[in-house]
C-alpha cells in the first residue's frame, strides 16, 4: 500500500475543513480528485505534504507503512512525497537548479546514497528538462521568479521529474496551461508513471483525464470524499456538475 488515509479531520484557524477523509492508494495507481472550489482539495494535499498551520484533529495518514503526520515536510520529501503546488512560490535570487540540487542531494544523503556532483546533476537536469520541453534558460533563473503562470506549472512537473518521488500530488497542475503545454505536461507525467510511483491529480477539468488516464476518480466536497468511481465519473461531473453527488450522498 502506498498511501492510506483514515478518517482524517483537519482544521485551519479553528475551522474544520477536512471532515473525515478515507482514501487508499496502491502502488502505481493514478487517482484523480475533483470537487468544487473551497471543498478542501488543496488542504488535503498540504496536510499530506506537511504544511504548517493545519491542525489534524482526528485520523491518520500512513505512507509506505510510516506515520506521515509525525514527519517534518523535508523528511516526507526524503521519503519520496512530492507536491506540485497549485500556486508555485517565487524565491527571488535563488537559482532554480541550485534549489533542486540541494533537494536532490539532501534526499540522496538521507537514503545513504552518494551525492551528485555538479556535472552529474547538470546532466540529470538537462535530460529531465527535455521531458517537459522546458527551455534551458529556466534552469538558471530564480525559482519561479517572473515565470508566467503556465511556466510555473511546467517547472513543477520538471521538478517532479528530477526528484523522482514515489507519491506525487499534482494540485491543479493543468490550470493555466495552454493547449500545447497541457499536452506536453501530460506527456511528461505519463512518462513518469511507473509501477512504484503513485499519483494524485487534483483537477477541475475532465480534459486532463483524456491525456492522463486515471485508475480511480474521487469527488471531494464539503470536506469528505462523497463519491468514488472510474473515469466515467469525471465525464458525468463535466456534464452535470456536483449537486447530484451531494444529493446522492445526503439521501
Amino acid at each position: 500500500m502506498m498511501l492510506k488515509i483514515e478518517n482524517l479531520h483537519a482544521s485551519v484557524d479553528g475551522k474544520e475543513i477536512l471532515k473525515g477523509i478515507d482514501l487508499t492508494i496502491g502502488a502505481g495507481e493514478v487517482h484523480a480528485i475533483m470537487g468544487p472550489n473551497g471543498s478542501g482539495k488543496s488542504t488535503l494535499s498540504n496536510v499530506i505534504a506537511g504544511r504548517d498551520g493545519y491542525e489534524v484533529t482526528q485520523g491518520s495518514v500512513t505512507y509506505k507503512g510510516m506515520d506521515l503526520l509525525a514527519m517534518l515536510p523535508e523528511e516526507r520529501a526524503w521519503a519520496g512525497v512530492f507536491l506540485a503546488f497549485q500556486y508555485p512560490v517565487e524565491i527571488p535570487g535563488v537559482n532554480n537548479t541550485y534549489l533542486l540540487k540541494a533537494g536532490v542531494n539532501a534526499s540522496r544523503k538521507h537514503r545513504g546514497e552518494q551525492e551528485l556532483d555538479a556535472m552529474e546533476f547538470m546532466q540529470l537536469v538537462k535530460e529531465k528538462a527535455k521531458l517537459v520541453e522546458l527551455d534551458q534558460s529556466f534552469l538558471s533563473r530564480g525559482v519561479n521568479e517572473g515565470f508566467s503562470g503556465g511556466e510555473k506549472k511546467r517547472n513543477e512537473i520538471f521538478q517532479m521529474a528530477v526528484l523522482e518521488p514515489s507519491l506525487a500530488l499534482l494540485d491543479e497542475t493543468d490550470s493555466g496551461l495552454d493547449i500545447d503545454a497541457l499536452r506536453i505536461v501530460a506527456k511528461g507525467v505519463n512518462e513518469l508513471r511507473a509501477a512504484e510511483r503513485s499519483i494524485i491529480m487534483i483537477t477541475h477539468y475532465q480534459r486532463l483525464l483524456d491525456y492522463i488516464q486515471p485508475d480511480v476518480v474521487h469527488v471531494l466536497a464539503d470536506g469528505k470524499i462523497l463519491k468514488t468511481g472510474d473515469k466515467s465519473l469525471a465525464l458525468k461531473l463535466e456534464e452535470r456538475g456536483y449537486d447530484w453527488v451531494r444529493e446522492e450522498a445526503h439521501a
Binding site: G50, P73, E74, A77, W78, L99, G103, A106
Partner: peptide, 9 residues
C-alpha cells in the same frame, strides 16, 4: 514550505 517540500531543511 516550498523549499522543505523539495527536501531542504
Amino acid at each position: 514550505f516550498y523549499c522543505q517540500s523539495r527536501g531542504i531543511s
